[in-house]
Design a protein around this nucleic acid. Structure first.
Lengths: 217, 217
DNA sequence: GTTCCAAGTAACTCTCTGGTTACTTATTGC
DNA sequence: GCAATAAGTAACCAGAGAGTTACTTGGAAC
């Protein structure tokens, strides 16, 4: 190691840190303004790096956008994986997660709006979906989820119910009269989703006593 | 009328038509690329008018964007109003409507992403929401919709269920394996929504025979 | 018919912005 | 040590794109 030991705080050169800084700044900028609205100079300034570096590491603006999206996708997957099997995986939980990680929701929105047919990191994402579907089928077998519902439709519906308010904050406000970040709205939505979860369980048999916290994954 | 009768097809001047052309072209452009991505010159070319006219009628790019959104909002409201009380107002119906009028969904998405606090045409939209809520309460009174669900939450949920796939076509594809416009996907989604509609009716009492087509508004 | 304004055109400007050139300096393999 | 290469800087550039200037023309009012 030629790196001066004991002076870890200010290494003259640090590609890893530079790359990271760019990605963090770019996520903020792209999430806030989208691809077309984002400004490369702004990202560079925010990251406190020279603009040239950005092109050095990511080629061009589009390359950077893709890198940011790719990174967010894998982060999100890693995070989701850690809590599989955890009983707190409910609609309410995912709803709260979406509200807290607006960057994620917004990046997906920008992606969807630009959508030209091909999806970034398609393979990994398909695998992630497959794992999610498996978990839904398990819940169906355990009688926590109505079996005559198509797992894929269930999954799409879960995403709808949990992400929509964060994706359309203005509609949330218009319809409920409260801002997305209003704790009252949050609480009411979570309670509502709890009920919806109950509705989605098999009608016949054990209705009313099964652990509410566990109906979804 | 000094306008040459019988030669309606080619009036030398026609402000109404020019305005209209600009709005139509602008809707396409903004819907496709968003505010930042849209190009004023492109809109002008598409509308076959001189760019200067665009500024003449709408002030600037932002004014045009607002005009487009405002127009779409009122069109949509007028349209929605004509079918109140119509039995075909179901989740499935609204879902199909969202898929067919992607411009609407996308404009709302752009609006939500730019969302800075203030909403265009807030007053009218609030009134429209209020009318929708009233209809939901009516359905609750008639026993078509569970009464222990908050009408506002129901409405937000309706929007979620019906608009989400159109708003996130890439997720739709990833999760269901089919494109938004694939008739198979459409059919499956409509069927699924029918079931969801059933689930949302009061548990006790008349379950199973009530007209499926009418549970929502 | 002539005045006056809205409708319309063509060419222009000037800033913003993605991307580059030409350079310096640290690090690493030998 | 010393090339060779990667990390980093500053100034620059060309083109795009929003908005304007300066002008012409149709048509309605009087």
């Amino acid at each position: 190691m030629a790196k001066p030991v004991g002076n870890e705080s200010a290494p003259a050169r640090n590609p890893e840190r530079t790359r990271e800084r760019i990605l963090v700044a770019a996520l903020k900028e792209f999430s806030a303004k989208g691809f077309a609205g984002a400004r490369v100079d702004f990202i560079a300034r925010r990251a406190s790096i020279n603009k040239r570096m950005l092109y050095h590491y990511f080629g061009d603006k589009e390359g950077l956008f893709k890198a940011v999206l790719r990174r967010k996708v894998s982060q999100r997957q890693a995070w989701a994986e850690t809590l599989s099997g955890d009983p707190s995986e409910t609609l309410g939980f995912w709803f709260e997660a979406a509200c807290k990680d607006m960057d994620w929701v917004r990046m997906l929105e920008w992606e969807g709006l630009q959508h030209n047919g091909k999806i970034i990191d398609e393979k990994e994402r398909l695998e992630s979906v497959a794992r999610g579907l498996k978990r839904i089928r398990q819940r169906q077998e355990r009688g926590l989820l109505s079996s005559d519902l198509d797992p894929r439709q269930i999954m799409l519906t879960m995403r709808s119910l949990t992400m929509f308010p964060a994706a359309f904050p203005q509609l949330t406000r218009l319809i409920t009269g409260r801002a997305l970040n209003d704790p009252v709205f949050r609480k009411e939505r979570v309670e509502f989703l709890k009920k919806i979860g109950l509705f989605l369980r098999p009608a016949r048999g054990h209705r009313g006593k099964t652990n509410v916290v566990e109906q979804f994954s």
